[in-house]
Amino acid sequence: MTAEPTSARSQARYDAETLASLTADAAQIMARYPDPRSGLLPMLHLVQSVDGYVSRDGIMFCAEQLGMTAAEVSAVATFYTQYKRHPNGTYTVGVCTNTLCAVMGGDAIFEELSEHLGVGHDETTEDGAITLERVECNAACDYAPVVMVNWEFFDNQTPESAAALTDRLRLGEDVAPTRGASSVCSFKRMSRVLAGFPDGRADEGETAGAPTLAGLRLARAASGSVGEGDPSSPGAPSASVVPPSAPARPGQPGDEGSPSPTSGAASASGPAAGRAPGTGEEQQEAEVPPETGAERSSAERKPAATGDESPGRSPSGGKADPEPERKGRDDD
């Protein structure tokens, strides 16, 4: 594993400048791990940040860096859905159509986008702007139905909001996710971050939406504290609970252990302590102004106005051909 610029004999046909910069980045990636081979996944994200997909050259490059064969690299690259085998659009628009989001409206959103954009799953619009995907559960079920754009969260979507979102993306406008950076970056920039090279945007965006804070706000209301993270206001309603902000007990761990749990033993013991009900019925509205998401919890929302309002049909259907594959064909 050499950190030196790969020689001119490299079979990856990058120009000298690109190759030098890729090689320097690859060296940084490999240095993060005790075994350089662990750097393969980030390295594949890295070549996507240059080529917009895992190209033949990208595979050759990774193979040379890691002393693997191209077949071995391809075997890995084709296993993971985020590695694209054809040039990706500037934006991956992923509609969650796993059960919960599908039932809550994800199916309708996908249908709308597919018709609106004139493409199906894993296809790219003619202008190269958008690759449409069905995606699996993205761990945002409390914001269903969810759309991801370059893996940033667009919560509580409707067919109309999602179609408008894609219109703005195609016009090249800045679009802000509901929870994430202040605007969505391109597929290539995203891929560079996923390769482990920060873009300095971690502090952008809000902390959490209303569902994330739903329980906490109830607990605050119940304990009479409306503190915004005030360390002196215990969030836990029960006196038996020491909130993390409280000074640590001078406890001596290790004496009198609780019975060690044995899995499989079925016990129907109820909750440890019955406490007074302290349910505040209040929930503060989210003050987060999401770009396209709903401003309140999705289930509270009134049904959106219906009516067929698909404004501009996409120019045409048809297969994606965002950019000519540069050289050779996709290795598989």
Partner: peptide
């Protein structure tokens, strides 16, 4: 009735909750 019990969630409504300083302030 079992009450809610913010422990891991306790700092989530703080301003810039993800920052180290916020976490340190909360202990």
């Amino acid at each position: 009735m079992t009450d809610l019990l913010p422990v891991l969630t306790d700092t989530w409504d703080a301003e810039r909750s993800w920052k180290l300083a916020t976490y340190e302030e909360a202990g």
